[in-house]
Write a protein that binds this DNA or RNA. Structure first.
Length: 559
DNA sequence: AATTTCATCAACCGCTAAGGA
DNA sequence: GTCCTTAGCGGTTGATGAAAT
């Protein structure tokens, strides 16, 4: 039963003249009947807790009508309600205020929630701002329920359709960063664009920062890679090309220019071994894989632990045995072992078997998908998840044919952690060139999508600060991290503090559109759809993109 | 029919930021 | 500059009813 707590703050008798006598009587009766607090008021009167009664609601509504919202502590004083201001505010906000929409979320609302969550993380209040009539509490409850359901069913948190939709919207909006009210715009526009953080801070400018990829929000990554690698079939070199264009545009500060040089140089060096890379990253495996499979990870083990490409989305749901803190959109699960992300990290020194998420390797522990997915409140989205799970399960047999013998029958996500012979080749390559661009990029790739990404709210400006965190400072960087990470102290490495987006662009780029265009270039806008192999829903990628790296370099004129 | 499990909802708690004295 | 109050946010817990066993 609910507790009754005494709050020490002194409150007087209050102005009971505002309170209807019948309401007062009803309130007292309700209090008695509900076993709530004492009907006697005065200093030290215990404040009632627990469910609100209709009489209390009436009192609160009446008070707000007369006095407006705010000053909630005065409610108790002025009405005699034995509720703290906090409770009054909550009751009003969640239940009593007008225009509240009751009932189950519509499919459209569910979809929007997922999109918003992908963007904002657990910013329920902000999300509620995009859902008129809905409260943060409702959204939070819905999401938590959804998380539990998906977790139990080993389903991705974000349905492919939602991610694809975001990607499509991204494409549509790529040339239209106008920061409109439209949620899709807001999702992807410069209004709350995280991509600069990603591109300039962590991806382009600072090779070292690549190692800090876990700090990046999955949203940024999904936006970037979903666009660049999947839907647009953009090769990495295309991005390098665009980076060069950005550099040539002259709108970047020397720090970024140097950084681009550094990346380009590394990429150039690396391009000579593109075939090796292709093998290292498991594209042979990809080529062999069933093209219709939805669960093929484009980067094979390079994206170990990532579901970013699963079904074209970046689900971070993984089977888990214990309580899981789900702030997935930003892959913000930090409550786990600070070093746990290493489990997903591909690094030269690691043995393949170490790279496999034990959860993902324990298919036997994967709970079966049952009818629990079909709750009465199920919308099309939840049903979609169920169908997705069924499809994934049905596809397991096909995938098993290309799995390593070390992998037992697995979960639908196991393909993200396949330890294939190609991986071994890649490992050899890494061992040969431990500090190559490849290792950095692969490291980045592997880390970027780990579920142990530190809690970086996608919308949080903290990401700027995080981009400056040194490995030693980073809470996600265990002691083992140092050993895994090749150290690059090139003279061209810019100081992290110079990599903030607002510091990267010189004064002649005061026009935000220039910045956005530059970012768009970095992200591979304008990439044609020449390469169209489709691995699954929304996954369009094959080795041709990588095989054309040299060509891309030549076209870019960087040598 | 009884028990258990699960989903949903409502409310509370702790923390933080903002604003004013 | 410090302290206090207030409002707000996000996490967590508990109650309840439905479904499953």
């Amino acid at each position: 039963m609910y507790r009754v707590k005494s709050e020490g703050e002194g409150e007087g008798e209050g102005d009971c003249e505002m309170m209807l006598q019948e309401q007062m009587d009803s309130l007292v009766a309700d209090d008695v009947s509900s076993g709530g607090g004492s009907p006697h008021r005065g200093v030290g009167t215990p404040l009632k807790k627990g469910p609100w009664t209709s009489a209390e609601d009436a009192i609160l509504v009446d008070y707000v009508k007369k006095n407006g919202e705010g000053n909630w502590n005065a409610v108790q004083k002025n009405t005699g309600l034995f509720r703290c201001g906090k409770s009054c505010r909550l009751r009003w906000a969640n239940h009593l205020r007008p225009n509240l929409k009751k009932g189950a979320f519509t499919p459209e609302e569910e979809r929007l929630i997922i999109q918003l969550h992908a963007k904002m993380g657990n910013k329920w209040a902000r999300m509620a701002g995009h859902l008129p009539g809905r409260t943060d509490n409702e959204i939070k409850n819905y999401w938590n329920t959804r998380i539990k359901r998906c977790q139990r069913a080993s389903l991705p948190i974000y349905p492919a359709s939602v991610c694809n939709q975001s990607t499509n919207e991204d494409q549509q909006l790529s040339g239209n960063f106008n920061g409109g009210e439209n949620i899709s715009n807001d999702l992807l526009s410069g209004n709350s664009l995280y991509l600069p953080d990603f591109t300039s801070d962590n991806f382009i400018a600072n090779p070292e920062a690549l190692s800090y990829a876990p700090q990046l929000s999955a949203v940024s990554i999904s936006n970037l890679l979903g666009q660049s690698f999947a839907s647009k079939s953009c090769s990495f070199m295309d991005q390098v090309d665009q980076a060069g264009m950005l550099k040539q545009s002259g709108c970047v500060l020397p720090a970024l220019s140097d950084a681009i040089d550094s990346v380009l140089s590394s990429a150039d060096h690396f391009s000579n071994d593109s075939e090796k890379l292709r093998q290292a990253l498991g594209f042979d495996y990809l080529n062999e894989a069933n093209a219709s499979s939805k669960s093929i990870a484009p980067f094979g083990v390079a994206l170990t632990g990532s579901h970013a490409f699963l079904n074209g989305n970046f689900s971070a749901s993984r089977p888990t045995n214990g309580p899981l803190k789900m702030e997935l959109p930003s892959l913000q699960d930090t409550e786990s072992d600070p070093n746990s992300w290493l489990k997903y990290t591909v690094a030269p020194a690691m043995q393949p078997t170490e790279l496999v998420d034990p959860y993902l390797q324990s298919p036997s522990a994967t709970p079966s998908v049952k009818s629990e997915c079909a709750s009465p409140r199920n919308s099309g989205l939840l049903e979609e998840l169920l169908h997705e799970a069924q499809a994934l399960r049905s596809g397991k047999n096909q995938q098993s044919s290309v799995r390593s013998s070390s992998s037992s029958a697995g979960t639908p996500y196991e393909t993200t952690t396949v330890v294939s012979p190609e991986f071994d080749m890649g490992q050899e390559y890494w061992e040969e060139q431990p500090s190559s661009f490849l290792s950095e990029y692969a490291h980045f790739s592997g880390n970027s999508f780990t579920e142990s990404t530190p809690p970086v709210s996608a919308a949080s400006p903290d990401i700027f600060q995080l981009s400056k965190i040194s490995p030693a400072q980073s809470p996600s960087m265990g002691s083992g991290e140092q050993a895994l990470e090749p150290k690059h102290e090139s003279a061209a490495s810019p100081r992290p503090e110079n990599l903030r987006p607002d510091a990267l662009f010189s004064g002649n780029t005061a026009d935000p559109s220039i910045f956005n265009n530059a970012i768009a270039m970095l992200l591979g806008n304008g990439i044609d759809a020449e390469y169209k192999p489709v691995l699954g829903d929304g996954i369009v990628l094959d080795s041709s993109s990588w095989n054309n790296m040299q060509h891309a370099f030549q076209m870019a004129g960087f040598k």
